[in-house]
Amino acid sequence: MKNPFSRRIDYAELDDGQLVALAKEDKSAFGELYERYLPKIYRYVYYRTGNVHDAEDLTAKVFFRALSHIGNYVEKGVPFQAWLYRIAHNLVANWHRDQGRRKIIALDEYVAHPLKSEAPDRLTEEQEERNQLMEAVRRLPEDRQQLLLLKFVEQMSNAEIGAIMGRTEGAIKSLYHRTLLALREEMVAIQKGDLKQWSDGKEG
C-alpha cells in the first residue's frame, strides 16, 4: 500500500529505523534504503565472489529478500545495515557451497586504475603482488575475509564491524590481529609456491 503522505516525506532526512518502519508499507521508503546500501552490498558481494556477473545477481537477490522480509524485521540490537550484510553473507556462503569453487578476483578490472600512469614493468610487478595478496585473502576463513572487506573496503569501525558480525569490539580487534598474522603466513606460502614453480620450471 502506498503511503498517502509519501509526497510530503523527505526520505533522505530519515534515519534507517524510521525508513524501515515506513518501508513495511511504503516502497518509496525502501527505495531510499536501497540507494543508501546498494553500493556497500554490491562491493561486499563483488569482493566475495570475484566477478561482476555473480555480484550483480547476488546483490539483486539480497534486496529482493530484504524487501520480502522487511515486514517481519524487528530491530533487536541488529541494525538494518547489519541485517542486510547478514543476508548478503548467507547468500554468498550458499553461492560458494553451490559452486564448490573460489573464483579469482578480477583485480585487473578495478584495482589497477590508479597505476596506469606508471611504467609497464612496475605495473606488472604491482599487479602480481596484488594478485598474490588477493589469493592469500581468499584462502582465509570466511569471517576473516568479511572482516578485511568491512575494514578496508567500507572503512568501518570495529564497533560497526562487531554489530554486523555479531561480536564485541574487543573480539574484532583480536580477530584483526590474528587475521593479519594468518595473512602474512599465507603470503609466505604463496611466494614459496611461486619460487618452487619457477625453480621446477627451470630444472624441467
Binding site: S28, G31, Y34, E35, R43, A60, L107, Y110, L133, F152
Partner: peptide, 24 residues
Amino acid sequence: SLHASLTPMNPSQEYAENLRANLL
C-alpha cells in the same frame, strides 16, 4: 597493501536503475 588493493568500486548506473525499477 590491503589498503591499496581493497578499494571501493560501484555498480554500474544501468544496473542500479534496472534493479531499482525491478524492486520498486
